[in-house]
Design a protein around this nucleic acid. Sequence first.
DNA 1: TGATTATATCAGCATATGATTATATAATTG
DNA 2: CAATTATATAATCATATGCTGATATAATCA
Lengths: 104, 104
Amino acid sequence: MDTIEALTDSLKLLSDKTRLTIMALLKERELCVCDIVDILETTQPNISQHLRKLKLGGLVNETRKSQWIYYSLNVSDKPYLQGIMDQLPSMKEKLANRTNQSCN
Amino acid sequence: MDTIEALTDSLKLLSDKTRLTIMALLKERELCVCDIVDILETTQPNISQHLRKLKLGGLVNETRKSQWIYYSLNVSDKPYLQGIMDQLPSMKEKLANRTNQSCN
DNA sequence: TGATTATATCAGCATATGATTATATAATTG
DNA sequence: CAATTATATAATCATATGCTGATATAATCA
C-alpha cells in the first residue's frame, strides 16, 4: 500500500471524536475498557469496537491484567502523528471527576 | 467548538485519499482545478467538491487568475499538521508526467 | 460449579460520505 | 453576442461508518 493510503488509514482512525478522545485519555495513562466507558458515558460495545479499530491500526496496545484489559498508546514509532498528539487537550479533569469508580 | 472536535474536523479532511493527494500535489506548487483533474484522472465535479471542503476547512486558499482558479496550501498556521504534511511523498513525477497539458 | 463482572462480537439501523451525471455560472475569445 | 473553456452546484446512488441492543466469551469469586 502506498504512503498516502497508509496515511489516510491512520488519519481515519484519528478523525472520529470518540477515538480521538480515547487517544487523549490514554495520553494521561493506560486505562481499561470500563474506565473509558465510564468517562465517555457511552455503551461498552461502542468503546470496544473503537478500541479494536485503534488496535488493528497499531495506535494502541492491549494488556490483560486478570479480568481487565488495559489499553495504552502505541505512537512512539509514528513521529508524524506527534503534532496531533501534542495538540490534544489535557484530560486530567475527566480522569479525576469520575462518578462511577466501580471499575478498578 | 472544543479542541478535539476542531481537530477531528481537520483530520477528517485529510483522511480521504483524494484530498490527501491533492494536499501532496499542492505541496509542490499551486495548481488550478483542471491540473488536478488531469493528474488524478477523475471527474471535474469530484475535484471541485473536494477542493470546496478543503477550502471551507481552511486548509487551502483559492485565487482566480482570469478563467482559472488556483488553489494553494494554507497550513502554515496549523503547526500540528506539519508532521503529516512532511510525511507526504513527493509528487514531482506526477506533475512532470502529465499526459494532457491542455490546461495551462 | 454457578453467579458476577469485564470484554468482545454480531446484526441491524440511521446517517455520513465519495463518486457520478446533469446543469448552472463565469470568464474568454472569435 | 455566440461559442468555448473553466469551475461550481445540485440531485442521486452506493458504500462506509458509528451506535445500539442482544449475545458470546473469559476471568473471578462465593
